[in-house]
Write a protein that binds this DNA or RNA. Structure first.
Lengths: 255, 255
DNA sequence: CGGTTCCTTGAGAGAACTCAACGTCGGTGG
DNA sequence: CCACCGACGTTGAGTTCTCTCAAGGAACCG
């Protein structure tokens, strides 16, 4: 389908082992090792590979059926995971922002069940599963953190798998993105309308129409890659039922 | 909404600690400790509570907001987890059959995000989270098993959260139930059509219509609680895209 | 027996989809 | 430098799938 030149991740970048101390990573606070003991951090540094050069948009990290012998941690940018059905339709399983771990759904499997590619200029780290396994045996704290992250991902997936209207889905998505992709100018979305639609199980046109409607109601301003939320309260009233995100400050104060 | 007398789980049954050795449990093969070392099994027995008396249909195990200080393991029967929106509509999050752990999505939380109740005469075990945490520190094998189960649940939730037709959903559900609720006479479903519909994000009537259509096509016979699959191949052709279940033998041989 | 819940079927309504067209933007090459 | 091309975003019109509303039958229970 896509005529896009797909770059292979493995061939494009020679990973550097322990180029940086994770303690100094700008993404440390969101990362699983944020706040770990120095001892755990040292072990982690020894096992982890950083891919500091930019991974360009369209670069494939892995594909369905590939040997899943590592997990990836996003350091910068955005990674999209997705499957493709027999008719070539993409189903986006998730967007991974800095600090997010790609592969939590494959910890017990030897093959990837989805594809992953960068949708903006990104940096990722990776850690071999065997080394991760050894690490988890050495550090109960790290094991607990990983288990709780996986558990939280499951909770979120269950929440999003509910049956909601297009308006509810888009509103919940925008509030979620506000936490992941906020800039001083607004929410800078790294993904296309088509990606959003495939993630929310809607048609591209439906996402457009909903955004247009929200804009007409004065709830936001919409440009292809930049969205400014003007009335998070109104959006949250819609998104509340999804249970995917927490109430905005205005609502929390009112409660 | 429901006029059903809701029994409280905690008040109805005095749990018996280590009444049985899990090694002799009929559900051992499906349970997380199935195949564990004798040493781990002893530790597990010491921490685990068995509720051997029958937990009757409608009995609530826990409700949204309750303190989530334990996880439950189904020993017999079927446990349904669900949320209820502001209009009283139920959204079924999952059906838990023997061996399944209830609470994998709440491991890092202190409060339940869903309700749970028995939908058939059931037996459950439970283990306190603090004890579980200690157990995981002592046994890396158990920690790995729990992590992989959580990971697999995430994978399944992501698969089911996709956008599929009513036919695809029902077909995938039936094949899933074939693995969980098979009897010599067919699939004995413990849940109502309404529960199935709420789980699959369909209307009750839609589930009925799809089942009627499948029956007319000779793919199955349908009674309220008993379904016999006659053509798993046809169902699998529909369900394949969902990626929730493996191919039936006939398809595997053909491949 | 009533009463309730569950299952099933029909008819109409509505939300989202498909198909189609058009404008914009960015890259590429003549 | 500009024309061309493809990808993306937006809008409109018609269609379709599923839902809602309504009703009746079957099974179960007090």
């Amino acid at each position: 389908m896509s005529a896009e030149p797909i770059r292979s991740f493995r061939s494009s970048i020679a990973p550097a082992r322990a180029v940086v101390d994770c303690a100094h990573c700008p993404t440390a606070t969101a990362c699983i090792v944020g706040g770990c003991s120095r001892e755990d951090l040292n072990r982690w540094n020894d096992a982890m590979f950083s891919h500091i050069p930019l991974t360009m948009p369209g670069t494939t990290l892995f594909s369905v059926g590939d040997s899943a012998d590592a997990v990836f941690i996003v350091r910068a940018g955005c990674i999209k995971t997705f499957t493709t059905d027999s008719e070539g339709n993409e189903r986006v399983r998730g967007f991974h922002f800095p600090g997010s771990i790609v592969g939590l759904d494959t910890l017990g499997n030897t093959r990837w069940a989805s594809n992953a590619c960068a949708i903006s200029a990104s940096q990722v780290c990776h850690i071999d599963k065997n080394q991760l396994r050894a690490l988890l045996q050495q550090s109960p704290d790290l094991a607990r953190r990983l288990l709780e992250r996986t558990s939280a991902s499951l909770s979120q997936a269950l929440a999003l798998s509910g049956d909601y209207s297009a308006d509810q889905r888009v509103a919940a998505f925008l509030l979620l993105m506000q936490d992941c992709a906020s800039t001083p100018k607004g929410i800078r979305l790294p993904m296309t309308r088509r990606d959003i639609a495939n993630y929310l199980r809607l048609a591209t046109e439906t996402v457009c129409r909903v955004l247009t409607r929200f804009e007409q109601q004065g709830w936001l301003t919409s440009e292809p890659r930049l969205i400014r939320l003007l009335d998070t309260g109104a959006l949250w009233n819609l998104a509340e039922a999804v249970g995917l995100c927490t109430a905005p400050d205005s609502k929390r104060l009112a409660a």
